[in-house]
Design a protein around this nucleic acid. Structure first.
Lengths: 216, 216, 216, 216
DNA sequence: TATGAATGAGACTTCATTCAT
DNA sequence: CATGAATGAAGTCTCATTCAT
């Protein structure tokens, strides 16, 4: 067999694969239990990688967490800003923005939890880079609103307010899913109670509310 | 001296005082570091009581956390529903509701953090009682919206959506305070950037947005 | 009310009563759990006496244990040597000796357990006085055997062997009671299996065996 | 070097060695001080392994104790029933039975102490397996007596009585060794006082007594 | 590169004992 | 005499990290 190859994978591919497995497992565990609650043993177990390997490949628990944060928030800006084409109307741009946030969270289930924990911890682990990322998103949403204001379709409102509102609402929606059923019986008699309270079904409500709030 | 008195305090008062000190310190520490991150030693240190005292008076770390949760969420419903008088207009009721949430969080700084952590943890420690509390609040907001709909001032919208939006936004606002300054330079040129980004100054923005979203 | 009296009891009577209650509770607890396993709190609870009172009245845990040992083994010699009248035949003397040991243990249920634990611990807490007590008993049994030998009814045997055999057998009988039922099914077919395996019913067997062993 | 080998030991051997060291030390310490009195630190110190190792390899203190009990009583039945050949006379069988009990205890010095403590504690930690072991021994001694009865050399006696007598006597002999010297001066004038009061020297006396008791 | 063995530091918890009235 | 409050010291247990091969 060719040197440097294992099966059909190069050593490098194998290493990358290990790192991927570790990061995925770590992401899950950190999301479920938080930084302090997470156990390196558990991460090793879930990733199917020897514990010492984690130290060898990535580093200590803190470094591992940093990597996870980086991994999780890595392309968030790109994702959120994706498809916000210039030729779209401000409303359409805003919808794409909301949908992208929603989709990003749906595709990375640990993301909302890690985000909330990080915020609750005082953004301690949000590195300069991530703060810059968030700035990037703020610039985008500012652009959308400015455009709307110019075109007379949006009111003039602080984009930070808008973004926090969007993120806060979506986060809470996302994470309240498991307990939301407990509350629906309170709403008997309301026509529009969705039997399926899943995230996708409620996104339109959020969109509707936010656009109503924004529209001039 | 009268039996059962120590200085000017009865034994009972002394005990209650110890308990109060412990709960306050615990509340702070749990808020800052989460359940797993909190150290019983630290709680003892901050409360100025011996560590064994915590076990003597309250119980183990888990029991202490439960007590804190109970203590923190104890009268939340009352606080939030306070002053929502029948003679008020739906808009006014809604404003009182938002302001009460805001004030409650402002008065109990650890509350938002503990809340976010709990939500991120999957509401694991939200006891039956707390879920009932939240139900109580939902009933209130449902009442406000129903009233508004009847009077033709509000659109017919799922109250859960409204509440999650309110809570999510306020939570995020509250907890983003320490980093918000980092972002304001991005907004240069916007007229209404508040130099003082404190919570109270932004509440009107939230109110405005939410009411615009609700109004028929 | 007369000074120094409480109800109809003098202070001294009351104190003695407290001490009795403490010692009885302590005896029980030490028997059940051993010195290390016993908790001063538990002793206080069972005796109905405030924990600090134990320290005030008796002393620390070690002192309390000493007192219990003293209390428990106090009149054992007297009890065992009681009724061994000179005019009795050696066999009758020996029977009285065995019965007295048996009765003493039956009347002081904690005694066998404490005894076994003490022996297992290397007789650590058996003070000089208690060792002297045991010597006293040995002298008695030696006298019985010597008498028997003189009269030609007993073989000449080391009295220590006899005493250890008696004590060992009775102790083990006493303490195996709770589990003995588990074994009786093994003996099906044997005629003399007692349905009631209580101590008193088996004493005759022990007597019979020991006398057969001793008789010339 | 061969994979999985450390020096001349395989990993597995190294692990087993650790476990052995822990169990031996634990056996000693539990025997000396009882379950409650034993300190995990002390066990670690004596076994020469890190304290955490105990938890890693065996488990908590309770589990460790269980393992010790298992280890100590493990092959007791086999040992005691060993060499009791069918062609032996009932008396010879009984002697072998007594000698085997004696030897087993002599080879495992902690055994008698642990046994006495366990009995004093109410047999709490004697698992199903150990009770079964004891049953096994009872069946053996029952066989010996039945054989003797059939051959007309033994009286018909409850084997439980016999076994308790044997065990009780041997246990007490064994554990009274350290204090027995204190008593020998009482026996001056008796011819057969052994200068060396060690266990082996007294076994014949026990044998003699028990056989006299049994013989028809 | 990979892994089972091993451990120091520190967390949680208990409990005998003393304090303050 | 009596008692609830309080605590220092020490025990059990865990876990991130390193070692040895």
């Amino acid at each position: 067999m060719e040197k440097g190859k294992i099966g059909t994978k190069t050593l490098e591919e194998k290493r990358d694969e290990s790192i991927q497995k570790i990061l995925h497992a770590a992401m899950e565990v950190f999301a479920e239990l938080g930084y302090e609650g997470a156990r390196v043993d558990e991460i090793a177990k879930r990733s199917g990688v020897n514990k010492a390997m984690i130290y060898y490949r990535i580093g200590d628990k803190g470094k591992l967490y940093e990597e996870v944060i980086h991994y999780v928030f890595g392309d968030t800006v790109e994702r959120i800003s994706k498809n916000i084409k210039d030729e779209l109307s401000p409303e359409e741009k805003f919808k794409v923005y909301l949908e992208n946030i929603t989709k990003t969270m749906a595709e990375h289930p640990p993301l909302p939890r890690i985000m909330m924990r990080e915020i609750a911890s005082g953004w301690t682990n949000f590195s300069e880079a991530i703060v810059k990322d968030i700035s990037g998103i703020l610039v985008i949403i500012k652009g959308i609103i400015d455009d709307g204001v110019r075109k007379g379709v949006f009111i003039d409102i602080n984009p930070i307010v808008v973004h926090l509102m969007a993120i806060g609402t979506i986060l809470l929606f996302n994470l309240s899913m498991p307990v939301r059923q407990n509350f629906y019986h309170l709403l008997e008699g309301k026509i529009d109670v969705p039997k399926d309270a899943s995230f996708e079904h409620i996104l339109p409500d959020i969109e509707k509310m936010m656009l109503r709030a924004l529209k001039a």
